[in-house]
Simulated scan of single mutants.
Amino acid sequence: MKQNHVKHARLRLEGVEDSTLAEPDPRPKLFPRFLASIALFFFLVGMMIGRLQDPAPVMLDDIQITADGMQLLFDSEPKVTAEHVDGALVMRIDAEGSSRQGQLQLDGRNVNWRVLRSKGGLLVNFVAARPLRGQWHGAAEGGRWRLVISLGAED
C-alpha cells in the first residue's frame, strides 16, 4: 500500500509545475544578524565587567633621597621583592611609573641609583664601588604608601 501511495505522489508531481521561486528570496535573513548582535552585546558587557573588576595599577608618585637611602611614595601598597647581585641591590616593585636615575651619598661615597620600567613593574638598582646591603620597610601614610630603603656598605 505504501508503494501505491508513492507512485500516486510521483504522478501527481510530474504533471504539476514546481511551485518554488526560481530566484532567491529577496527578504533579508534576520536570524543570523540577531544572533550576531546578541553575541556582540554579551561580549561587550563581559569586557566592561572584567574592566571594573581589574584593579588599577599601583603608581609611583615621588622619589625622595634621604641621608642613608631613599623613600618611594606610591598611591597604594605595591608588592616588593629584592635581592643582592654581585654587591648591588636590585629591587622589583609591582608598580608603574617613569624611569629616573641619580646619585646619593652614603658615608661620603657615591651610590648610583636607577629606576627602570620593565614588564613586571619597576626595577630599582643601587650600585656603589663597595658592596651594598639594604633594608626596606613600608607604611601607609595619609592615603599613600611610603617605602623606605636604608642602605649600608657591607663589612
Rank of each mutant, 00 (worst) to 15 (best):
R33F: 12
A139K: 13
R146P: 02
N112C: 01
S37L: 14
D75K: 05
G50D: 05
A56L: 15
G143C: 10
Q101W: 03
I93D: 03
L151H: 04
L72Y: 03
I65N: 06
V6W: 09
K29C: 05
R10C: 12
V16D: 07
R144V: 04
V80Y: 02
R133A: 12
K7R: 13
G143N: 09
D155T: 12
F34S: 08
L40R: 09
D25L: 13
D25V: 08
I63S: 06
S118I: 07
L73R: 12
T81E: 08
S37I: 09
D155Y: 07
F74E: 00
E14K: 11
D54Y: 11
G87F: 00
A67H: 09
P131Y: 01
R12T: 13
G120M: 08
L151Y: 06
L122F: 06
L73Q: 12
V124N: 00
Q135V: 07
R33P: 06
R10M: 15
R146Q: 13
I149R: 04
F126D: 01
A129N: 11
I65A: 08
P24W: 06
L35Y: 03
L52D: 07
G134N: 03
T20N: 14
K2E: 15
R109H: 07
S118R: 09
A95M: 03
G142I: 04
W113P: 00
H5P: 04
R109F: 04
P57N: 07
R12F: 09
K7V: 06
V111S: 00
M47R: 07
L72E: 01
R33T: 13
R146S: 10
V124P: 00
W145H: 11
R12I: 12
R114V: 05
V16C: 08
L123E: 04
L104T: 01
G46L: 09
P26K: 06
A129V: 07
R10D: 12
L52W: 15
R130M: 12
R33M: 11
A82C: 04
R117E: 05
H8Q: 14
F41D: 07
R10S: 13
V16L: 13
L116P: 01
V85T: 03
G97P: 01
A36N: 07
S76P: 02
A9L: 14
L21M: 13
G97R: 01
R51D: 08
M1I: 10
P78E: 02
R92M: 12
A140Y: 09
P28G: 07
G142D: 14
G15I: 11
H84E: 06
L11P: 03
V16Q: 14
G138Y: 01
D25S: 12
Q53D: 09
R10F: 12
L52C: 11
D25P: 04
I49N: 01
S150E: 15
N110Y: 06
L72Q: 03
D18N: 15
L13A: 15
F74M: 02
M91D: 01
F126R: 00
P57Q: 06
M1N: 10
S37F: 10
G69S: 04
P28S: 08
G138H: 02
D68C: 03
V115I: 10
L44G: 09
L40K: 11
E141M: 11
T20M: 12
D75T: 05
T81Q: 09
D94L: 10
P57K: 05
V111K: 00
D54H: 12
G134R: 03
L89F: 05
A67V: 09
